[in-house]
Measured scan of single mutants.
Amino acid sequence: MPVRRGHVAPQNTFLDTIIRKFEGQSRKFIIANARVENCAVIYCNDGFCELCGYSRAEVMQRPCTCDFLHGPRTQRRAAAQIAQALLGAEERKVEIAFYRKDGSCFLCLVDVVPVKNEDGAVIMFILNFEVVMEKDMVGSPAHDTNHRGPPTSWLAPGRAKTFRLKLPALLALTARESSVRSGGAGGAGAPGAVVVDVDLTPAAPSSESLALDEVTAMDNHVAGLGPAEERRALVGPGSPPRSAPGQLPSPRAHSLNPDASGSSCSLARTRSRESCASVRRASSADDIEAMRAGVLPPPPRHASTGAMHPLRSGLLNSTSDSDLVRYRTISKIPQITLNFVDLKGDPFLASPTSDREIIAPKIKERTHNVTEKVTQVLSLGADVLPEYKLQAPRIHRWTILHYSPFKAVWDWLILLLVIYTAVFTPYSAAFLLKETEEGPPATECGYACQPLAVVDLIVDIMFIVDILINFRTTYVNANEEVVSHPGRIAVHYFKGWFLIDMVAAIPFDLLI
C-alpha cells in the first residue's frame, strides 16, 4: 500500500533555474538572501570558489559584500557603492579590487542584480563577478574607477581610450546646418538635424578633445543650467548677453562664444560640459537660429522629431539603469545623424518603425519583477520565466494532490484497515475457520451469522477504491517536481505499489 509523501509542494524551481543557467555559462556568482541580516550568502558556485580561493563552506553565510576579499588596494568608495546597491532595488555595476585567499590582487567587475517577489519586494541578490585585470595590471588604489561605466561593446579594446569628441564640431553647429540641408533625401539625416562627426583615429590627448566618459557625465550638469543662461549661451556672438549692473557675465554663455574659444586653444572642462549641455537642449539648428531671432517656433511634425517616441515608452518600462547606459552608448555611435529632440514631445505622434532597438522591449506582467540581467542570462521568455513566489501546480481535472487534506485522511483510514487485516486475518484463519468446520452448517442466516465476513468484505472494497484513487494521485519525481499527468501517474504506480495493492485487495476469504 503506498505511503508516498512529498510535502515540499507547491515547489518553486526558480532558484534552481537560475543556478542551472548560470552554471551553463561558466559564470562566477553568488546568491544572497536579502531578508536576513547583512544579506548572507546562501549559494556560491564553483567558479566563484576558484576565483577567490575560498571553499564553499568558508563563503556560505558570510555577508555578500565580500568584505573578506578586501585588501589594501580595495577602494572604500567601491565598497560603499556595493553596500548601497544592496540597500536599493536597481541593478548596478561596480569595479573593485579584490584579494584572493593567497593574497593576489585582481580588479573585478561586480554586477549586483536584485530579484523581487510578486509584491515588488527584493528577496534575493545575485552578484556576478568578472575579472577585468590581474594584480600586475591593477593601478594605484588612489585612482577611482567606479565613477565610470563599463566599456562599450562596439569599441575595440585597444581603442576604448582613444575615443574623442571634438569640441569644434559642437561649436560649428550653425555652420554645418547648410551642408545638412543640402544633403536632402540623399543624406542619412532628416531636415533640421545636426550631424556630429566623431574622430576615432588614435591621437595624443589634446586640450581640444573630450573623453567619452566626460560626455556621459554632461547629463548630470544640465539641471544646474538655468533657462535664461541656456538661451544666452545659444544666442551666440551676435547678441551678447546682458548683465545687470554690478553683475558679471555668465561664464556659461561665454563658453560657447566662437570668438572667445578661437582665441585660446584650450577650454576648461567645466565650460566644455556646460556648452555641450546647452546645445543638447535645442532640438535642431533651426531652433538655434530661432533663439537668435527671439522667436522659438513649435517643433515640426516630421520623422526626426518622432524618433524618440518609442524611446520614451522603453525608458518607462525599463527595469534597470543598464538600459540608460545602453541608450547613452548607442546615442554616441560615430558617423550617424543625431536628432536633438526633447523627450517631452507630442504624445499624438505616431511611433516610426526603427531597425535598431535601443531599449529592451516591454516586459510582460509575469516578468515585471525580474531584472534585465536575470532575463538576459536565463534566456527565457515571458511565458517560461515565473515570478519568485509559491505557485500552485497546474493539475488535470479529477486529480488528487498527494499533500491535500483528503489524501491525508484517506491514508490514515487505509492504515487502520491494514492494521485490522494484519490482526484479524490470522485470527480468523486459526480459530474461526476451525469452529466453522466443526459446527453445523448455517446457510440460512447468511452474513448475519458471520459479522467478521462483512467487515472483511468492506475492507476489500476499500482497498479496491484505494487502488483507483492512487491512479489519480500526484507524486514527486526525482527532481522534486509534482507530477499531475494521468499517464505518468499510471506508469509510476504500475512500477511501484500496484502489484502489492492488488494482492492485498483480493478477497481470499470469499474465494475459499
Results as ranks from 00 to 15, higher is better:
F340G: 14
V110C: 11
P114K: 05
P72T: 04
R159Y: 11
E95I: 04
E214V: 06
V138Y: 06
V115L: 13
P141M: 14
D102H: 01
R20A: 11
V196W: 01
V341A: 15
T329F: 03
S178L: 04
N12G: 15
G262F: 04
D111G: 08
E90C: 08
M137P: 07
F14C: 13
A228C: 05
H221N: 06
R281T: 15
A228G: 07
C39V: 07
C265R: 12
R62P: 01
Y327P: 14
N128A: 15
R366F: 13
I288K: 07
L212N: 09
P2N: 06
E130M: 09
R312K: 14
L225A: 06
Q84E: 15
N339I: 01
R77E: 13
C265E: 07
T145S: 15
N257G: 12
A156E: 15
D287M: 07
V377H: 04
N128E: 13
D197K: 03
V194I: 05
Y99Q: 01
V94H: 03
H143E: 14
G53W: 01
L296H: 08
P63K: 11
R20H: 05
P258N: 11
V215K: 08
V94Y: 01
A223P: 13
V131A: 15
I30W: 01
T353V: 14
R35C: 06
A293N: 15
S272C: 07
S379K: 05
G149H: 06
E372S: 15
S284T: 13
I18N: 01
L267C: 13
C276S: 07
E50M: 03
A260E: 14
R292L: 11
M133H: 14
P63I: 01
S266V: 12
P72E: 07
V112I: 15
L380Y: 03
P245S: 15
G186D: 10
E372W: 07
L200I: 07
K332E: 14
P157S: 06
A223H: 14
I123Y: 05
A89H: 07
C49T: 11
V115S: 03
R148W: 07
P150C: 06
C39A: 14
A293R: 10
M124T: 09
V122H: 06
V36I: 07
E372N: 14
P347L: 05
C52Y: 05
I288F: 14
T152K: 06
E208P: 15
P361C: 07
D213T: 14
D259V: 11
R20V: 05
D199A: 04
E130P: 01
Y99S: 03
N128M: 06
K362N: 07
L349M: 14
P63W: 01
S207P: 06
S278W: 08
R356A: 05
N220V: 06
R366G: 05
S55A: 06
V3W: 13
T65Y: 08
P258H: 09
C66A: 03
P310D: 15
S182Q: 14
A290P: 12
E230I: 09
S206W: 05
V222K: 15
V215S: 15
F68L: 01
L267S: 08
D323P: 09
M137D: 04
P297F: 14
E50H: 06
A223R: 14
I126G: 07
E130S: 06
K135W: 05
L51N: 01
S264F: 06
H254E: 15
